[in-house]
């Protein structure tokens, strides 16, 4: 497969996965969150996660940071369209960041040669 076709197809597949994630991703907690709920007594090991279960986070003496797009959203007001925009931004940003970093590294090697 030709280079540009491979790039375009790859990004298209990644965006499709991201779009599907917005609509189809499970709302259940992930493995780390589930474990946190189990050890704090709000979930049994193999049982379903209660709807009101919430992870207790103790931020005393710890760093706290508010991300601009928390949980891959643009806030409640924009809903699903906001999530779609955020997902596309994320996919393109991941591609550009790694492409750019790789280019910088290979250019540094050429300069040294």
């Amino acid at each position: 497969m030709e280079r540009n076709t491979f790039i375009l197809l790859g990004i298209a597949i990644a965006i499709c996965i991201g779009v599907l994630a917005v609509f189809l991703a499970s709302g259940d907690p992930d493995g780390l969150e589930s474990t946190a709920l189990v050890v704090q007594g709000d979930k049994t090991l193999t049982g379903a996660t209660p709807e009101n279960a919430e992870i207790k986070e103790d931020l005393t003496g710890k760093f706290s940071y508010e991300a601009p797009f928390p949980d891959y959203t643009m806030g409640d007001a924009l809903g699903k369209p906001g999530e779609l925009i955020v997902m596309v931004i994320g996919v393109i940003l991941a591609f550009v960041a790694v492409f750019g970093a790789s280019k910088l590294v290979t250019q540094a090697r050429k300069k040294e040669a």
């Binding site: 996965i17 991703a25 997902m87």
Partner: peptide
């Protein structure tokens, strides 16, 4: 490498 990164980003957001 870059396409892999984009794919990994997208698929990490897709909880099954």
């Amino acid at each position: 490498v870059a396409v892999l990164a984009a794919g990994i980003f997208a698929i990490q957001a897709f909880n099954l």
